[in-house]
Nucleic acid binder design. Structure first.
Lengths: 207, 207
DNA sequence: GCCGATACTGAGCGAGCGCTTAGCAAGCCG
DNA sequence: CGGCTTGCTAAGCGCTCGCTCAGTATCGGC
């Protein structure tokens, strides 16, 4: 992970799927601006300015300001789902898979907190149909984590009172990392990932 | 807790300290609007309209739109701190006090989620000096919870690897309830409070 | 060398924003 | 009863917003 990308807005080679280059620069500028000030407080002039372009250039590549948020949100959620799915399908018992899922999910929220903050907290600024699409992706994230916890309960590895509620709490705990984590704080993303994996294993009563 | 206030925006007899009546109505309208759409997406015309007044009436009672957010945020944080302090100073061992703190704090975030959402998630919309004042209140909330956990560790009741990190995680878990809780969901605020108290006791390794 | 396509800029439109001002109705005090 | 204060409204100012459009520079294909 390069320092430039760590401080500027994301994971290494992030947004590589966005082409052409000008469209990607605008999208990265939008991620930074949305994360700093929020969607509604960000102006299209600010986004274009950060990308080194005139305000009108934005509308060559995106129909509206909301389309930018939509693209960011979908790509981000797909990445989040990918992280959880990879961990859930790994070999190993439920304890190992849950620890892996939580630590990598938290690492993503801490390391790419600029992106994660937009993805997790600007959802309400999307229109109804667009939001519905993103909410569907979130439910699939939820299902991946619930699957691991159910496996652990079935195998007798975990002791859980309320599977649905505990799943929600685990995801909520991980997601909120994007709100409070700061690169200037006392922890690295790896350290928070390890701490949180331990806390979550305690929450599910892993032996 | 009356149904009207539950669906409309807060706890019973909330905002009783705000006078005169017109100022309170405007403030309650602002809480609802900020919670629904966010601070920047809310217009002063919308706030005044919800309170049944003309746009100009707002400026009789408040200097700016930001002063409304400031007042809401300070009163809300004082209430949150009061809840945690009351629980921390109760009689009983650390396990009982932590369970009490978490369940009442979560109940407040779930039951008064309209208010809590504004208080917890619109902080960045405040100006620098105002935000500093609120951040100081948050640190005092943090200190109350850390105090209980430190007591529990000292008494041998808890088994915690990282007191500071665990404190942060516990508060983060509780606060994020305001983001996802819905009155239409499958749980009551009491049920979430009880579930979360159990989860947190597991996180700190309570016997 | 010319043509159309592509990527961009400068200027600016209509709308809606936060906030102000002038004026008015109602209540209290002498 | 007259004059002052209080709480409000109608109208609107100055500004910035998201977005548009006519015009321009650049470039590959023929």
């Amino acid at each position: 992970m390069s320092t430039a990308e760590e401080t500027a807005g994301g994971e290494p080679q992030a947004w590589g799927e966005v082409t052409p280059d000008a469209a990607r620069r605008l999208l990265i500028a939008a991620v930074e601006a949305f994360a700093e000030r929020g969607y509604h407080a960000t102006t299209t002039r600010d986004i274009a300015g950060r990308a080194g372009m005139s305000p009108a250039a934005l509308y060559i590549h995106y129909k509206t300001k909301e389309e930018l948020l939509h693209r960011i949100s979908r790509i981000g959620h797909e990445k989040a789902l990918d992280i959880l799915r990879t961990a859930a399908r790994r070999e190993g018992d439920a304890t190992q898979r849950l620890a892996d899922a939580v630590s990598s999910f938290v690492r993503w929220h801490a390391g790419g907190r600029t992106t994660a903050r937009v993805v997790q907290y600007e959802l309400d600024s999307l229109g109804p149909e667009t939001r519905a699409e993103i909410v569907a992706l979130r439910r699939r994230c939820d299902a991946e984590v619930r699957g691991i916890i159910e496996d652990g309960v079935a195998a007798g590895e975990f002791d859980v009172l309320d599977v649905k509620g505990t799943t929600l709490a685990v995801l909520s705990l991980c997601i909120d990392v994007a709100r409070w984590f700061s690169i200037d704080g006392p922890w690295t993303p790896d350290e928070v990932g390890a701490l949180y994996a331990d806390l979550v294993l305690r929450m599910v009563g892993a032996k």
